[in-house]
Write a protein that binds this DNA or RNA. Structure first.
Lengths: 204, 204
DNA sequence: TAAAAAAGAGTGAACGCTCACTTTTGTAGG
DNA sequence: CCTACAAAAGTGAGCGTTCACTCTTTTTTA
């Protein structure tokens, strides 16, 4: 065993977070015990408390690392898009892909977070921050499209952005809850069709 | 005991449910104690258990009575509408009105229910049932509109219905969580604009 | 270099508390 | 006195958190 370095601590931290995520996704936050997390991460309960001050601090960190990065993720993955149309389309694609393939657990984590939101103000604030981040990004995209004339001028960028965010999380929740008959591909197509018909400039 | 009639029992039951709802809305399900509910309903804990078998049974009943009636409510309130366009429009209006004025607590109750959904299968099933009910209704409305030629034939009734339901619940959750800058009236307008542009038959 | 000491990560039984639920006791009709 | 019910006290399991202690690794010293 080499020297106990800072990296080692980081790895342990990550191991705990991973373990906690698995446990939370399986039983939800309230039913998950600190012991569960400790066992799964191969540590003792006491050791765990050397890395995190409380059970809720673990959930909070998990949210920041797994959910909080959504806005910057969207920005990064759509930075090389050709224009606002492609940006919007990419966002929807990213959303569907993330839910189905890349990070299917994220949806369940969001469900866990929502479950705690009512009782824990800090958790709620975390969700609000994420909401604001994504909405700000989407709004910016739409506004650019309006200014460039590619989107119709009457479109309400701010409201559309909020709507898409609410829609995304609504779908995510039902998807995470294993709703039967909720197929993502048709949903993607229909959402894009609606957005397209709403945002396309039309001479009436 | 002659004086204790069946109606009296019913009233007690309702009193407990009302008390439970208030408590759940205030602290969430997990943090709410049976004692809280008992005190608020003016009964003792023991008395409470004469009416409900468990704490979760209270939540479940509450869900059935407060959330489960959504589909039939929609049907009833839109039965005298002139046509599918008005039906859709009415649904959106009802949704916004219910959230803002009529039953603002329903949104928070939905939040509570979602919070328990991950951990309690029966609660989850209840939410799924509600989802199916509303989706079935909306789908029917859209399909009628398509058949009568008022909606464009290419529209996907089933997916659109699911989308609207997810959107509604997404908005409800964020609204119930007191998201700042979430204004319902612009949302209503934009949703209707999107639906209108998507469903309107267009000769291309 | 080897032994001793220091450092500090890791352990897990125990504590204190909460809370859903049960049992016992009290009381008001008939 | 009996019955139907409610009030209150009780019960015990579960869980987050702590802390005295162990054990491993690193540093110091002779």
């Amino acid at each position: 065993m080499p020297k106990v370095t800072e990296t080692h601590k980081m790895l342990r931290r990550q191991a705990i977070l991973t373990a906690a995520e698995e446990v939370f996704l399986g039983k939800g936050y309230q039913l998950a015990t600190v012991d569960d997390i400790a066992v799964r991460s191969g540590l003792s309960v006491g050791a765990l408390y050397r890395y995190f001050g409380s059970k809720s601090e673990i959930l909070l960190t998990l949210m920041q690392e797994r959910l909080g990065r959504t806005p910057e993720l969207l920005e990064r993955l759509t930075s090389d898009a050709g224009g606002p149309w492609e940006q919007i389309s990419r966002c929807v694609d990213i959303f569907v892909l993330a839910l189905r393939v890349r990070h299917p657990s994220t949806g369940r984590l969001l469900l866990v977070a929502w479950g705690e939101a009512l009782q824990d103000r800090i958790v709620r604030d975390g969700l609000m921050l994420r909401f604001q981040g994504v909405v700000d990004y989407l709004r910016d995209v739409v506004e650019r499209g309006i200014q460039s004339g590619e989107f119709r001028a009457e479109a309400d960028a701010k409201v559309l952005a909020s709507l898409l965010m609410c829609l995304a999380d609504g779908v995510t929740l039902y998807w995470a809850a294993n709703t039967p008959e909720l197929e993502l591909h048709p949903i993607r197509a229909t959402v894009m069709a609606m957005v397209r018909s709403y945002l396309s400039p039309q001479e009436s």
